[in-house]
Nucleic acid binder design. Structure first.
Lengths: 210, 210
DNA sequence: AGGTCACATGACTTGCAGGTCACAAGGAGG
DNA sequence: CCTCCTTGTGACCTGCAAGTCATGTGACCT
């Protein structure tokens, strides 16, 4: 945790430090990052940095915490309401939430990408334990709800398909955000994704929103 | 490119160096890797290292080249024969090839994972240009063939679905390799994946192998 | 004004990692 | 046995990056 001094900083200065650090970690990764470069680009002294943070890791973990908190907050509306909607509506909502989150703050998105599903095994292990259960079980939860609701084909194995769905939706988001700048290709892509999902997972007589 | 001296080394010594380096890079990433640790674990002198390689990057690129070459070789049978098989057969073949590749050499797999779709933007850019077109277009190619063959639903947008498929199959492989050690859960998972694909992408009257 | 305290500062220390070099060892050919 | 050439060696050099510390500074209280 950053020291009290850091949280006592004027908002603009604190935010500047966070943005600069976010960019540094997003671009260079943890091992490649450089505190000298960070303080220089913030226009603060090296010593000040260590009045705010115990060490480099402390800063990284603070940013990871913030990122997770924001992601959870942006997901909250979907998490709160999924029980009163159909499966495909929920998937679409989840997906669009992810896209909007990325569009709202591309830097935070890049940072998140760097630190999920890639390197960092050593450091991340320390961090991941806190949050792992949340994201892994989300799709399983949606599927169980859909199953109870009679929306699923009878031959669906929930754990397998939950793993597939997680992969599928995550990667689809990445594809849209990073490769499809054109609004129209995005729309087409999203429709294609939903068609793919519905015809693959749902009974063909399956219901719409409840 | 490594220096001639390296290729003149006795096989066991050369392979030892490659294995140790593969592990170092897989575990630590590029920025976190350490040549001192590598030479120590190989039981060779620091100076020798620089008789084999220009620098650390030279070693990394050599390993990346080898990895790509092996991956291409393992994919070759599928690439050679896809025109005489159905779409879902091709996907299954591709998928199982990936799984077998990972099982045959878990260390090489871990190394590959670390350096694809994660960090490394800086260094990888330099490397990726050589190979990018190959993997991105593979699924597009399979889809075009399937389309010409009348296997696809009429409302499929090939570029969109190619992107989805790439993501889907890659992530499905990762899920199987890294999370499913039990043989039976794997079998179930693969069947589920194919059901998912077929009902999502193919006409319901779609054909089997030609 | 004087004192105190929290915060800011940047030269400095320390350790380490990439890369070098002068020398040693060994083998092939005369 | 001497020579030359290729390969091996590890102490050393150099630069850099994390983290420290003695000192400066300004706000606020008395």
């Amino acid at each position: 945790m950053p020291k009290p001094t850091f949280f006592g900083l004027p908002d603009d200065k604190r935010q500047l430090i966070e943005r600069v650090a976010l960019e540094e970690f997003a671009d260079q990764g943890y091992a490649g990052s450089n505190t000298n470069r960070i303080v220089e680009r913030c226009g603060i002294a090296k010593g000040s940095f260590y009045q705010y943070f115990d060490d480099k890791k402390d800063l990284l973990f603070h940013l990871l915490d913030k990122m997770v908190a924001e992601k959870m907050a942006s997901l909250q509306p979907v998490l709160d309401n999924y029980k009163s909607h159909s499966f495909s509506h929920n998937i679409e909502a989840l997906f669009e939430t992810g896209i909007r989150y990325a569009a709202a703050d591309p830097l935070l998105w890049r940072f998140g990408r760097r630190f999920t599903g890639g390197g960092m095994m050593d450091l991340l292990m320390e961090f991941a334990a806190k949050y792992r259960p949340v994201s892994t079980d989300l799709f399983g939860e949606l599927l169980l709800h859909a199953e109870a609701n009679g929306e699923l084909r009878d031959d669906i194995d929930v754990p397998s398909v939950a793993a597939l769905l997680t992969a599928f939706v995550n990667q689809a988001s990445i594809t849209v955000v990073e490769r499809m700048t054109n609004e129209q290709t995005r729309t087409v892509f999203i429709r294609q994704m939903l068609l793919f999902l519905e015809h693959g997972v749902l009974k063909h007589s399956g219901g719409n929103d409840l």
